[in-house]
Design a protein around this nucleic acid. Structure first.
Lengths: 231, 231
DNA sequence: ACCTGAACACCGTTCAAGT
DNA sequence: ACCTGAACACCGTTCAAGT
């Protein structure tokens, strides 16, 4: 009682930028970005829509800020270990953040005005590769390859219309039902013999592909890891 | 005069689904998907907005159909040559389609009701890999890896806020200007020594990474190409 | 059969006003 | 200083009507 704000219109005290941001992220996580409107957001915060504009200058600004919160969650790759384990950890961290926040796929790299956490992240990844002996061009190769894979996997995963293999079957059936049977024999075989299999776990594909990439980078680019002392 | 339709309200004769589709794609190509509205589309076709609904049942249905047009453009991988060249050609075809239609990135795999061209494409790619000796699991690995890369590259590329290296410089400057100098030394070095270099061509990165992937698949998975006779 | 116009339930956001 | 309410210029789409 002593610490609670005396009496404001909305239930949880004064509106702050942080409350707006985290309510927006929670809403996008739960309902998807297309259902995040300034009006519904205001409703969940129990304020008038226009109250939000004291803390964000526009919906676009809001989304910019949401994206930077995601980059804050991702953090920067730790300095310990060789570049490969460092890049692997970083890739998994991005993947996990995108699993928590599927709406952020396609937005992390899209914003015209990247926030500080975004820039800090990219700066750290580039720095880590350079410190391991990658020259500028090799860094570009490695970064492009890894990020394309990570974002692309998240994209196809986010778009994948099913979660588990039970739903996969129904979904695949619904997808194919408007078409003549045996029109797409290879697709049907693939879905029935793999995707609809009980043990199927698309998420496991991510780390498989990631290791293929890291191994390929190790072989094709500069082989030896130089000094590893990023403190 | 003889072949022209006598007198309808809009300039180019009767409205057809094809005209709606291609006008929509042209508009999205030129202005971006967020500027494609049923109302502006109707305007360019010189009809009332509601006239469109005779040919598409909703905006979502319109976008579904647009996506399938893109898959029609992509086509199916040709049967000739080994799987590697076949998959390479296919990847480049997808890349080119996404260059022409950047709005389609993130939509190609997203639609709940994939169209016939979409399914035919996937069926053909899976069939090509299976015919080359990939088992179902290896096919899943290869497909996931390649598609993640292709879509991810398109995503980061589409989001890249600059086209050539001249604009890159201005853009990078604008991105970093709100922050203290030397806050992101690695990023600054990377941008100034690589991205802002005259010869810089991010598009070339695509085929570099693609070949890394194809080589890795060749080594890591089933080595020999089996019989190649997909007629 | 094909197209139109008015209307409805939404958006993001501006502006003037409240406390 | 912080929040509200009415209003504006948009959306996609329903419905009844025109020819």
């Amino acid at each position: 009682m002593a610490t609670a704000r005396p009496s404001t219109t909305n239930s949880r005290g004064r509106l702050t930028r942080d409350r707006v941001l985290h309510a927006a992220i929670a809403h996008a996580d739960a309902a998807g970005l297309e259902f995040l409107t300034m009006r519904t957001l205001a409703e969940t915060l129990e304020v008038a829509p226009m109250a939000l504009y004291r803390h964000v200058s526009s919906k676009d600004d809001l989304i910019d800020a949401m994206v930077d919160v995601v980059f804050t969650e991702i953090g920067v790759p730790g300095g310990g270990g060789d570049w490969k384990t460092s890049m692997r950890r970083r890739a998994v961290a991005v993947r996990q953040a995108l699993t928590r926040h599927p709406w952020a796929v396609g937005l992390l790299e899209a914003r015209r005005r990247p926030g500080p956490a975004n820039l800090r992240h990219h700066d750290a990844v580039i720095g880590r590769l350079r410190a391991a002996g990658f020259d500028v061009i090799e860094t570009a190769h490695a970064y492009s390859l890894l990020d394309s894979y990570i974002y692309g996997f998240a994209l196809t995963k986010a778009d994948l219309p099913f979660d588990g293999s039970e739903q996969a079957g129904a979904m695949a059936g619904a997808m194919l039902s408007p078409f003549p049977a045996n029109e797409y024999p290879n697709l049907v075989e693939f879905l029935s013999e793999h995707v609809m299999t009980p043990g199927y776990d698309y998420e496991a594909e991510f780390e498989f592909g990631l290791d293929v990439l890291l191994d390929a980078l190790e072989q094709g680019l500069r082989p030896p890891d130089r000094i590893v002392s990023l403190r």
